[in-house]
Simulated scan of single mutants.
Amino acid sequence: MRHLVFLLSLSSVCFFTRSEIADNNFSKCKMFFLNNAPPDFTPPAGVSVKPICQCLWDDNDQQLYLFATLYSTTWKIPVYSAYLFGSPNIGRCDAWYIEPQALNSDYKNSGYNKGHLYPVLHTSNHLSMLATSTLTNVAPQKSDFNQNAWLRHEEAIKEDLKSCDEAYVVTGVVPDTEAPKLKNRVTVAKYYWRATCCLKNNQYTGMGYYGPDKNGEVQKLTITNLKKKLNDVYQICFFPTQYTEDSGDWVVL
């Protein structure tokens, strides 16, 4: 693979970069959203966001888009990352890509881990695995939660989704705007959340997750209840489908 210069580019192309500022519809990476439609997100007042198409070049110098991220330049953490679940997962390599918006030094001796939104456990190829290690795909996460309850959750999701014909995932954070920022720059994550949408037997089934709760664990809840929890911080609609609360099934419109 060619040597990559890992800079967040404001240009409209991804040449020599691994991230591309996208239009509001994520037109070059819309395939990572159900029905090619990104979540309908309303940021709080005074919070700026930028859509990013995460990309790399393969061995044949072909540009590959690997997942999508809505990144807050105000909080300096992602609001969410969206991806297609892949299984089985492959080995991990932590080669962190430098981004002008966030720096490795922000996390040094902070007591927080770099918490992946799109985790290595949910990737199925080498390039996707590499692409997850960008600072636009992580937020400060308490180490105990990251290495225990959230890891168990990611492993459980891997088992739940591997039998799907296809599965769309949106993972995000709830910022802790009252906590001290890392290096007076980076807002820490108070909660992590995930919404999944699994196609199986011609039906989409959705599920939501939210944590840590008061016991330090990850709650499993309906998509509707996940949205209600997040409405305390911001409004977001994950999937452009009709949801039947009683059955938990997603019916494609």
Rank of each mutant, 00 (worst) to 15 (best):
140 P>S: 04
246 D>M: 07
59 D>F: 05
105 S>T: 13
54 Q>E: 04
182 L>R: 06
209 Y>S: 06
240 P>N: 10
215 N>L: 05
73 T>L: 06
21 I>V: 14
115 G>Q: 05
229 K>I: 05
216 G>A: 08
83 Y>R: 05
176 D>E: 10
162 K>D: 10
11 S>L: 12
26 F>Y: 04
91 G>W: 05
189 A>R: 05
4 L>W: 03
64 L>R: 15
223 I>P: 00
49 V>Y: 02
130 L>P: 03
191 Y>P: 03
61 D>W: 00
43 P>M: 11
224 T>F: 14
179 A>S: 15
52 I>P: 01
76 K>H: 14
141 Q>G: 04
145 F>V: 02
177 T>V: 15
167 A>H: 12
244 T>R: 07
136 T>V: 11
128 S>E: 13
6 F>W: 05
171 T>S: 15
77 I>E: 05
85 F>H: 15
79 V>K: 03
104 N>K: 06
129 M>N: 11
178 E>M: 14
48 S>K: 11
146 N>G: 08
161 L>S: 11
14 C>H: 08
224 T>M: 10
65 Y>L: 03
141 Q>S: 03
148 N>G: 08
234 Y>K: 01
186 V>W: 08
20 E>R: 10
76 K>N: 14
117 L>T: 01
100 P>H: 07
166 E>C: 10
3 H>F: 13
250 W>E: 10
194 R>T: 15
183 K>F: 02
52 I>C: 00
94 D>R: 14
127 L>K: 00
180 P>V: 12
178 E>K: 15
201 N>S: 15
165 D>C: 06
116 H>L: 09
176 D>C: 11
88 P>G: 06
31 M>H: 00
158 K>P: 03
25 N>C: 03
5 V>A: 12
46 G>N: 09
225 N>K: 13
2 R>S: 12
45 A>W: 00
239 F>C: 05
73 T>Y: 02
237 C>S: 10
200 K>E: 14
213 D>Y: 10
11 S>P: 02
205 T>Q: 15
104 N>Y: 03
159 E>N: 14
224 T>A: 15
47 V>N: 06
23 D>I: 03
148 N>T: 10
230 L>S: 03
4 L>E: 11
133 S>Y: 14
117 L>Q: 11
72 S>T: 02
50 K>S: 08
188 V>E: 09
8 L>D: 08
172 G>R: 03
247 S>A: 07
